[in-house]
Design a protein around this nucleic acid. Structure first.
Lengths: 176, 176
DNA sequence: TAGAGTCTTCTACATCTGTAGAGGAGGAAC
DNA sequence: GTTCCTCCTCTACAGATGTAGAAGACTCTA
């Protein structure tokens, strides 16, 4: 699918060079397509941005295992660290949404409601707030590991140690 | 000081339009200076970026009150939420540092060592890790409040309620 | 007051970017 | 085979951008 080829190239570009690197022609080159291809599929830059954010949102799906909440969350986080570029692109997109409101509905961000549900399940009083804090913690864990101080921090993603470390942190955050 | 005028305008621009909005001429306009001013002070775009990141780093100084660790941290966090644009610009800079290594030494990010020290003080075993998790949590709290789901979340910054909410979160995170 | 040195403004230009449209290639329908 | 339609590639162009240097305004010293 040409369209996915293009949005995937856009994601890589944004991860590697930031939003500034996202130009029609740069995407053409990155995807190995003839000049003008990206411009044909996404006539405006706004459309291109929305296209790549949609692609990001499509690929994002997470269902926690009720028998191993902390473990499944830790594994998911670790996989996001492994897919470094996708996650970096996601942060760029979130920052972009700050001054580009049309993007917000695309990145619905159901995680928050999930977190509230989990907090309720674990018997927090005020699960609303606990869920928000929990989400913040996860978001921060990820962000900090990926860009904290400008570069990666902590055990190498994809290893057992990484998952273990993440799991310990998640367990602590889940504690009432 | 012309130089500070320029870097301050750059910070606002980046917060409002992202890195892409950071161009020499846009900074001139934003700062109300004649065209060419920014270009004279920062001949290349790279220099301009480094200039504004330095300015950000200069303004960032945090010393926790040992008698009220959680409270002083919470108040600082709240003040960063109030200075929304500065904090947003900082996130843009962190993302930028990902593919622009020269920026890393500028944003030294001492918070991490401070966090380790605090963790040690509070008697955590493995203060290294506890400090890292704590920093991640704070970073996440901030990030999530400011850009979570694409827009601001939680109690209005600058209010007593905001500080109280933050303090509760910080206290929990500080618990061994 | 004259001169030297710095700060500021203006102008130039090659390159890149967003966006549009013209036309071709290929396949399906008839 | 002809017609139609969709998908793709190429070209054009106005405007923005990075960067450099020329020239004017200002400031301080002697």
């Amino acid at each position: 699918m040409r369209r996915d080829l293009i949005t995937d190239a856009a994601i890589q570009l944004v991860a590697e060079q930031g939003m500034r690197g996202l130009t029609h022609r740069a995407v053409d080159r990155r995807a190995g397509l003839p000049e003008g291809s990206t411009s044909a599929y996404f006539r405006t830059r706004k459309a291109l941005i929305e296209g790549f954010v949609e692609r990001l949102a499509d690929q994002e799906r997470f269902v926690p295992d009720p028998d191993d909440v902390a473990g499944s969350i830790a594994r998911t986080l670790d996989s996001w660290l492994v897919e470094r570029n996708r996650t970096l692109a996601r942060y760029s997109a979130m920052l972009e949404a700050t001054h580009h409101p049309e993007l917000r509905p695309i990145m619905v961000h159901s995680p928050r409601e999930q977190a509230t549900a989990i907090a309720k399940m674990l018997g927090h009083q005020d699960p609303e707030r606990a869920g928000a804090h929990f989400t913040a913690f996860l978001e921060g864990l990820l962000f900090y590991r990926l860009v904290g101080g400008g570069s990666t921090v902590g055990p190498a993603p994809g290893t057992e140690e990484s998952v273990r470390d993440l799991k310990a942190a998640v367990e602590k955050a889940l504690r009432p």
